[in-house]
Simulated assay, not measured.
Amino acid sequence: MSDNTTQRKALQQLQNEPDQERIAYYRKPFMVLWAAVQEASSELQDDYSLSPELAQLWVAEQLRQVSDSLVDRLAEIAVAHGESKSNVARAAGASPDNVLRRFPRLKTDASHGRTLVDDVLDTLE
């Protein structure tokens, strides 16, 4: 059995797991993220007098944008390491038929410039 087939079967098995089983894989990282949103939003409340609700929304939206950029980058890395575009689409919950629409940077002639996550990572150095 090819590695591509093995990966596809593993992704299908994961997709068929009950929600609670799948959530268990990312529950802990989510709790860390939620705590980070709470902490960052309290600083916004203090610095800008934003309500807790708007401060949390603002922080979560910024994180969503960076996370989207990270997903795009991880898709590129997976393909560069030999994963099929179809399995990359499956791992991201997208149809394999729409992989290039979901990840336009996977096109052979696509620009591979900087992404938002690159800018964020640069601030950590």
Rank of each mutant, 00 (worst) to 15 (best):
A92I: 04
E43M: 12
V120R: 12
V37H: 02
A75M: 06
A80P: 06
E83M: 15
T108Y: 08
R73P: 01
V66M: 13
P104L: 08
S95Y: 00
R114T: 06
V117G: 02
E43D: 09
L33I: 15
H112I: 14
A36Q: 04
D19P: 00
P29V: 09
V88T: 14
L57H: 12
L63I: 13
S2A: 03
E83T: 14
V59N: 07
V79M: 03
K28Q: 13
Q7M: 08
H81F: 11
R8Q: 09
A40L: 15
L70C: 06
R8F: 00
Q65D: 09
L63G: 02
L74M: 15
S69T: 05
L33K: 13
A110C: 05
L14P: 00
R105E: 10
I23H: 08
D119F: 05
L100P: 02
D118H: 06
Q65N: 11
L14V: 12
S69I: 05
A91V: 06
P18T: 03
N16C: 04
W34T: 09
E39S: 08
R22Y: 01
L70R: 11
Q45F: 02
S84F: 00
D68M: 11
E125A: 06
H81L: 09
A89G: 04
L54Q: 07
L100F: 14
L121F: 06
G93W: 03
M1P: 00
L57M: 13
E76P: 04
E21V: 15
E53H: 10
M31P: 00
L57C: 08
N98C: 13
E61V: 08
S69D: 05
P52E: 14
Q45D: 02
Q13R: 06
Q13C: 03
E125H: 09
L54S: 10
A91M: 05
P29E: 04
H81D: 15
E43I: 11
D118M: 03
D119E: 11
K107Y: 05
F30R: 10
N98K: 13
S49E: 15
E43C: 06
K9R: 15
V59W: 02
E53A: 12
Q7Y: 01
S42H: 13
L54G: 08
